[in-house]
Design a protein around this nucleic acid. Sequence first.
DNA 1: AAGTCGTGGCT
DNA 2: TAGCCAAGACT
Length: 374
Amino acid sequence: MEQWSEETIAAFRKTLLKWYDENKRDLPWRRDHDPYHVWVSEIMLQQTQVNTVIPYYERFMSMFPTINDLAAAKPEQLLKAWEGLGYYSRARNLQRAAQEIVNDRRGEWPTTDAGLQELTGIGPYTAGAIASIAFGEPVAAVDGNAFRVFGRLLMIDADITKPATRQLFAETIDRIIDPQRPGDFNQAIMDLGSSYMTAKNPDVEHSPVKMFDRSYETGHVLDYPVKTAKPRPVPVDYVALVIHTPAGYLMTKRPSTGLLANLWTFPLVKVSDLLKDDEQKTDLMDVDIVSRAEQAFETETEIPVSLALIGGRAVTHTFTHLKWQIRLVSAELSTVPDISLFAGEIVAESAFDQYPMPVVQQKLWRRWQAASKK
DNA sequence: AAGTCGTGGCT
DNA sequence: TAGCCAAGACT
């Protein structure tokens, strides 16, 4: 990898910050340096694009204007505000950290990189971002942009998917960051990484720092940053149970840990759980799926139902590591059953907007609506 | 160290 | 389409 002289570092800072001063994006969380504003935006922006975050951020700040409002909010209200944004543990950890600050620290923020990392949900990147932007600490904020920008500028050959590599980048950037304007420096790197130095279609020719870009000079822009590919999502078959009663639909709240924690969906049964140990999934016809789902459902709930398969292709929903393929089966009940043994509620359609539901449930609902209107 | 944890955009 | 990719943290 390249090593920059003090002169090069000084020139880079000047060039980068001049460009930033003239071209920085006007984003809702850049109106001030309030740590609460910086923090909420940084959590939302984890693995999420700016354009997706903006409306969530605006709505969130109107619902929870201060950290005290967030600390005191009902968890279900918070989850509703996060609905559709994904990585829902972020919302839970956000409130935990708010309570840590409000209750344990008398409302006083830690003001250092190290202190911020002690808060729930704040890791090395987010701590660096808050410390530099809100508190002026000259510390790197090593996110995907920093990996990409400095990986290319300096042609750093370390694999960024390996945890140990983060330290190498942090040490490298800590020597380059402008100690007078660390927050602006880090944000300038982010703006650069989302404009001229994107992953797929970079425009280095017009980049303000192209003179500093060793990968451009040598024709290896797209070879950086170095990373190993992630495994493909694993297909998993499910059956969704659409139980309609005069009072509404049977809905379940997912467990408080794991995928889509605490969100509400139609009851979902993994098809492999319906099979005997020696049976192969491909041996079963759809009618078998229905009868077995029925048996499993009544065993668990004692709710008498007669299920019918909703035809057509499965609803598919892909997560980072899983690909759910869901077939719908339905039952129309003329009376409201006793669900006291069932971990869920019967929810009127008019009350759906009060329950946080993941996107996959919204897909199932649309498919059910389309099928039931035929 | 390697898996887990969402969603939408883009090619 | 299928496969990346996007301001990561936690276990």
